[in-house]
Every structure is written in structure tokens, then in C-alpha cells.
Computed example of a mutant assay.
Amino acid sequence: MGKLYLVPTPIGNLEDMTLRAIRILKEADLILAEDTRTSGKLLQHFEITTPMQSHHMHNEHRMVDGIVKKIQSGSDIALISDAGTPAISDPGFLLTRACVENGIEVDCLPGATAFVPALVNSGLPNDKFVFEGFLPVKKGRQTRLKFLAGETRTMIFYESPHKLVKTLANFVEYFGAERPVSVSRELSKLYEETIRGSALEVLEHFSEKPPKGEIVIVVAGKK
């Protein structure tokens, strides 16, 4: 029987790719990639010639059984997302669960993920925290925000640049204008930036300067 490898890839700076990750991707029989075009550039950079197959949120449900059978027949398969660690707000959970249920060994390599550096450099308490990922876009958003208003642990969110201002405005409304917030964008990249302040101050900053790139929001818990 083969094995499933979950392999983190850089969130920006290619120097964050580990030597072990490169070796596993070269030795695997197949690489499952969220976007083969994006991952193709990464593999080319590190001279990895392993065959790739698309595995994303729109096809993962129907692909899981076939992948499990391939691993059971002896294939070692590596799963990567466009950036960061698979299954963290990216495809990977369904396949991992299926492998565990079928007695297949799963090996998740340590490596890049966006929320850890954003949390650490926020200056907010990190002894206890909760990762929320992306908030619901419409249905359930208000309910979730009302619930989180009473959360005492530091909260971490992912957000897209064109929705950041709306989300910060929600935080002002539900958490209060003075709630400490830290927004990190373009982590590990050339224009990396972290803006810290009250929810209102950070909202005003990004209302005047529309953000670009991948974004992580860290919010202090309720005192």
C-alpha cells in the first residue's frame, strides 16, 4: 500500500520551500494540485517532473474514491494547494479523511501557512486562539459575527482584498470600534505589510488605501 503526503508550498517566497518537500514531490508517483498551472511554475522552478493531476474544490468529491484505490494499489500520492498547507481553507480534508478511514498512512509535512506568521507578528495574545478561516459571504454571516462578539480568544480570519473593508466594518459594528485588529497582507512577499490598530483605525486605513494580495486578519478576543 502507498501513502498520502500533504505537502505545504510557499505562500510567496520560494525560499520557504523545504528540502524534504522537494524530495517528496520528486519521489511521489503523482501530485494532486489545486491549480496545475500555478503549481506547474513551482515544479518547474525546483526541477520536479512528477506527473500532476487537478484536484480542487469542484472535483474533489468525485475523485476521492479513485485516489484511495490508487494509493491502496501501491502509489505514493502528494497533495499540494496553490499556496500554504493543504486542507487549511483549501482542498485536502475529504481525501485525508477517506485515507484515514481506509487505514492509509497520511504524512503531513510541516511548512508554510499564512495564519501563523500573521498571528505571531500581530502582537496580540497567541497563547490561545481560534482559526475562523473565511466568514460566510451571505447566509449565516450575521449569526457568526454575533456569536464571535463574545469570543475571548484571539481570532484569525482569511479575507480577499475586495471584501476586506466590508469585513472590517462588520468588526466595528459587532466587536466595537476599539477592538484591537492586525491585518497582514502579502506575507513573505516583496510588499509584505502589517497594519495594526483599533478596528476603526484599520478600517479607515484600508478605506483610503485599497488593499491588494492575500490577507490575514487577527482580532483580539473580548476582554
Rank of each mutant, 00 (worst) to 15 (best):
T49W: 07
A78L: 08
F171R: 00
T152D: 09
M155N: 01
S122E: 00
N126Q: 06
E101V: 07
K139W: 03
I71A: 00
V165C: 13
K146L: 10
L135K: 02
L43R: 07
K70F: 01
I80S: 03
H55R: 11
D76H: 14
A87C: 12
M63W: 07
A149S: 13
P86W: 05
S89G: 12
V106G: 00
A112C: 15
P161A: 13
A78I: 11
M63H: 10
D127S: 12
L43K: 11
H45L: 15
Q142S: 15
A33C: 15
L135M: 07
G103R: 04
F147W: 09
I104G: 02
Q53N: 12
L145A: 06
G150P: 00
V100L: 14
P51M: 00
P125I: 05
E101F: 07
K69H: 10
L109W: 04
G92F: 04
S81N: 06
K163F: 10
G111E: 01
G103Y: 00
K138D: 06
E47G: 12
G133C: 11
G92V: 02
T49Y: 10
T113E: 07
T38W: 02
V64N: 04
F131Y: 12
K138V: 11
L30I: 04
L109E: 05
E47L: 12
G92I: 04
L30N: 01
A112R: 02
S73Q: 14
I80R: 04
C99K: 01
D90N: 13
T143G: 09
